[in-house]
Computed example of a mutant assay.
Amino acid sequence: MTALPHHLDADIWLLHMFSSQAAREGGVIRRKVRDVDRIVGRDAFVTEMRRRGYRVYENAGQFVIFCNREAVRRVV
């Protein structure tokens, strides 16, 4: 396996993700599961989401991340 380019360093990637406007405003973002697994690793990703108190759901190869600590309610 080859090393990831510098811009895909796990810490930089997470920083970039949480620097997005949606994340900064407490919104919802999504990331491909394969990217998270390849760049950050699922365990490190889950640990960071728990540390921040964010809710994360997986669907159709995507992680849907609620960048706030509000309750999530399924409507349908």
Rank of each mutant, 00 (worst) to 15 (best):
S19Q: 13
Q62F: 01
E58G: 11
A10Y: 03
D43V: 07
E48Y: 06
I29K: 05
T2Q: 04
E25K: 08
Y54V: 00
G41S: 05
R69F: 01
L15H: 12
G26F: 03
L4V: 04
V56I: 09
V33P: 10
F45T: 00
R31K: 12
R50H: 14
M49A: 09
R30G: 09
A10Q: 04
G27T: 08
E70A: 13
L4C: 02
V75A: 09
R34M: 05
D11Y: 01
T47R: 14
R51Y: 10
I12N: 07
M17C: 11
A44Y: 00
V33H: 10
G27M: 03
V56W: 00
C67N: 07
H7D: 13
W13F: 15
V76F: 12
L15G: 15
E48Q: 11
M49H: 11
M1S: 10
Q21F: 13
V46M: 12
E25C: 03
D35N: 02
V75L: 15
G26H: 11
T2I: 08
N59Y: 05
A71R: 08
K32M: 09
I12V: 14
M49Y: 06
R74E: 15
I39Q: 13
A60I: 05
Q62M: 10
E70F: 04
R73F: 09
V28N: 04
R34S: 15
L8I: 01
T47V: 10
A44W: 00
V76W: 11
V46P: 08
A71M: 10
T2S: 09
Q21W: 02
V64W: 04
V72Q: 14
V72L: 12
A71D: 14
D9M: 04
R55Q: 09
S20Q: 06
N59L: 05
G26C: 12
V33R: 04
V33C: 06
M49T: 11
D35K: 05
V46T: 10
I39V: 15
R42S: 13
R50W: 07
L8G: 02
R52T: 01
R42T: 15
R69W: 00
V28S: 07
N59D: 08
M1I: 02
S20E: 12
L4G: 08
L4R: 06
H6F: 04
R42Q: 15
H7G: 06
E58H: 03
I39W: 00
I29D: 12
C67F: 00
C67R: 02
Q62K: 10
R50I: 00
Y57V: 06
V72T: 15
F18N: 05
K32P: 11
V28D: 09
H16W: 10
Q62G: 00
Y57A: 08
T2R: 11
W13P: 03
H6A: 14
A23I: 01
V46H: 02
Y57P: 00
V75W: 12
E70N: 12
M17L: 15
M1W: 03
C67P: 08
D43M: 05
R55N: 10
V40Y: 00
V36P: 08
V46I: 14
A23K: 02
K32V: 02
D35P: 06
Y57R: 08
L8W: 00
G41L: 01
